[in-house]
Design a protein around this nucleic acid. Structure first.
Lengths: 299, 299
DNA sequence: TTGCGTTACGACTCTCGTAAGGATG
DNA sequence: CATCCTTACGAGAGTCGTAACGCAA
């Protein structure tokens, strides 16, 4: 048994149990992985994959169990590498951040700028994705940290750090009737609503608020980002509901933002990363910068 | 980086960072481990060991961290082996049980007998040791399961399964004055006491009972096993306090057992094993037998 | 026929063991 | 001077790549 053979199991799982593609991923010829797999199975004395003829179809029950251990080993190995790189003051690492549009646009810019200055050698990769995907990206080790508001509570192999709390605002063109008088969910629901896609940026809090009030909003546009929403608000499609941070007084002077903190429960944006993985110091620095930025935004 | 190099780190820790002895343990010549260690340190880019000249003195901070990951890897690797062996219905395994005298003599015999019949190919190794050592044996992977009453609560990487609850009895020769009338801790303390060594078989419960009563017993003999205690009780050295299960009505007809359940809190004997290690099916069978035996003893 | 996996064989790399050498207490 | 670690070098084991073959969609 050796690390390459165990790695092969992981790669096979990621390639639909296709030896040829696994070989490609591992930068060896196909016959090599074929032999290594045979050797491993021979050593363990049982087959780890269900087969149809020569083709691999999936894992056997034993294979399932073993691959869980392989994942542990893979994580530990990664940790050893990261720690050594970190200790050596390696300035050639990479930071993979997965987040949603809202955070990428309104929270990350300053932290990223500071990070670039402090760690010019570290490449920053940002993946913008849906909250559903973020957790998966962490688990696949394709992201080091994820920043988002929704969907980050269910899993327990993550460390979750609350970053900042915010509330929603309604945005309407200046002169819109809603801008006067007292706001209520009922009045809001009297207009077509434009807001985030399900699963994005506090959408669940919006739904909960309307649901508990027994009001059925007419959501005519659901977008992944605030800019799209604002664009259509400008076109007069209806009332936008976006995160307060997404309203920019300067650029959005033609829009009015109406505080909804009394009507819709606040949302908390969190930072998440895998509990079992070692976080290099530059990663910790980035998280600290995010928290600092979140503090600054409050004032 | 490969598994042997990582294993070397573990072995070095166990051999006081002595390359020569580590080489012996790994069944290779000393120059081989020297080179492998150099290769690993070169690959990671930092040294993992504090050195004084050529000699290794201990781990660097980085080495400390890395070895924790190495332990994870070692456990996972062991699990893979165990699972494969178990799945293949391997009848050539071994069961390492660590326990104290009392359990070895009064709880284990039947379970061991049943185990031998069901798994004749599995060798049973029993290590008798002090409760202090048992946990260490588990951590060093020199024991699969530990059975004992004391000291099994503090660590959280163990799974603890309560096995049975029992209380102490006082044993005196027939005709001893204590055999008549009402027992109390004060009366007991009027005689020399013979009981277990600190840390053994509920000794802590005995101390707590006397301590809370404000009575200072005169413990003239502290032994690791009940048989020694009974022997000296027979010689008239004083009153023995032993586990109820250690009093055998047949063999011990010349002694009287006096129930102390009202005076000394009951003790619970537990089975412990490492949370992160895979338990082969024969191991689980043995644990089941122990629990069954504990049930049977109640009646 | 194409895609996928296995088997055979020669070349290369890696690791080991032997042996000699240097440092430390 | 005994113990411990390192270095040099040749032998052997292990792994890879090429290539030819078998099998199924």
């Amino acid at each position: 048994m050796n690390l390459n053979q165990l790695e092969l199991l992981r790669v096979l799982q990621e390639t639909d149990f296709n030896l040829s593609r696994a070989a490609e991923k591992m930068h060896v010829v196909q016959s090599a992985v074929s032999r290594q797999l045979q050797l491993l199975e021979a050593e363990l004395g049982s087959s780890l994959f269900e087969r149809h003829g020569k083709r691999l179809l999936g894992l056997t029950p034993l294979g399932e169990r073993i691959i869980r251990e392989v994942d542990q080993i893979h994580k530990a190995k990664k940790n050893i590498q990261s720690m050594a790189d970190d200790f050596r003051d390696n300035r050639n690492g990479a930071l993979h951040v997965a987040t949603t549009h809202t955070q990428a646009k309104y929270l990350l810019p300053m932290p990223v700028k500071n990070f670039r200055e402090k760690y010019p050698g570290i490449k920053i990769y940002m993946v913008q994705s849906s909250p559903d995907d973020l957790i998966e990206l962490l688990h696949k080790h394709e992201a080091d940290i994820a920043i988002c508001t929704e969907k980050l509570a269910e899993v327990d192999d993550l460390i979750l750090r609350p970053c900042y709390q915010w509330h929603h605002v309604a945005v309407v063109p200046t002169g819109h009737p809603l801008a006067d008088g007292k706001l209520s969910l009922e009045r809001l629901a009297g207009y077509p609503i434009l807001t985030y896609s399900p699963g994005f940026t506090g959408r669940s809090a919006i739904e909960r608020a309307f649901g508990e009030a027994g009001v059925q909003p007419d959501i005519v546009l659901a977008a992944a980002d605030s800019d799209v929403i604002k664009t259509y608000v400008r076109l007069g499609l209806g009332v936008g509901i976006i995160a307060e941070t997404s309203y920019e007084p300067g650029k959005d002077a033609d829009l009015v933002a109406l505080d909804l903190s009394a009507l819709i429960a606040p949302s908390t944006t969190k930072i998440a990363y895998l509990k079992q993985l070692y976080l290099p110091s530059y990663c910790r620095y980035f998280i600290d910068e995010l928290l600092k930025q979140a503090q600054a935004n409050k004032h």
